[in-house]
C-alpha cells in the first residue's frame, strides 16, 4: 500500500510514519516537504492515502489539495494540521479532503483514520 506523507516538518513526518508503521508495517511510504513535490509524487505514484499538512512553504496544503483533487477526484486525502479552527476544517472538507485530523498524530487517531479509509 502506497502512502504519501506531506509536511515541511521532519518531526511531523517521522511521527506520522512511525505511528502508521505500527499498524501497516508493509506500507510503502513517500515523503514530500511541500505541496509542489506532493503533487508530483501523487501523479507518479498514485498513493492510496495522502496525509497532508496545511502551512508549508513553496505550496501550501490548500493549493496542493485542490490540484490533487483535480488529478483524481477520488483521492483519499487526510489533512493533518495544527490549525484546528472549525472554519479551516470546513474549508478543507469542502475542497474534497476525506478527513481533517488535528496535530500531532497519535495511535488512536491513526487507527480511526485507517479504519475509515482503508478497511
Amino acid at each position: 500500500m502506497k502512502i504519501l506523507v506531506v509536511d515541511d516538518s521532519k518531526l511531523a513526518r517521522l511521527t506520522l510514519i512511525k505511528t502508521l508503521k505500527e499498524y501497516e508495517p508493509s506500507a510503502e511510504v513517500y515523503e514530500a516537504e511541500n505541496g509542489a513535490i506532493a503533487v508530483e509524487l501523487f501523479k507518479s505514484e498514485n498513493p492510496r492515502v495522502v496525509f497532508l499538512d496545511l502551512t508549508m512553504p513553496v505550496m501550501d496544503g490548500y493549493e496542493a489539495l485542490k490540484l490533487i483533487m483535480q488529478i483524481d477526484p477520488h483521492a483519499q486525502v487526510v489533512v493533518v494540521s495544527a490549525d484546528i479552527q472549525t472554519h479551516a476544517q470546513e474549508q478543507v472538507l469542502a475542497l474534497g479532503a476525506k478527513l481533517m485530523v488535528p496535530k500531532p498524530i497519535n495511535s488512536e487517531k491513526m487507527v480511526g483514520i485507517l479504519q475509515q479509509l482503508v478497511f
Binding site: S9, L11, D83, Q85, T86
Partner: peptide, 23 residues
C-alpha cells in the same frame, strides 16, 4: 537543524491551539 525542526513543529501545533482558543 533537527532540534529547530522539532521546536518549529511544536510551535506550529501550539499556535494552532492558540488560534483555536481565540476562535
Amino acid at each position: 537543524s533537527d532540534h529547530l525542526d522539532v521546536l518549529k513543529e511544536l510551535m506550529n501545533i501550539a499556535m494552532g491551539n492558540a488560534t483555536a482558543s481565540i476562535a
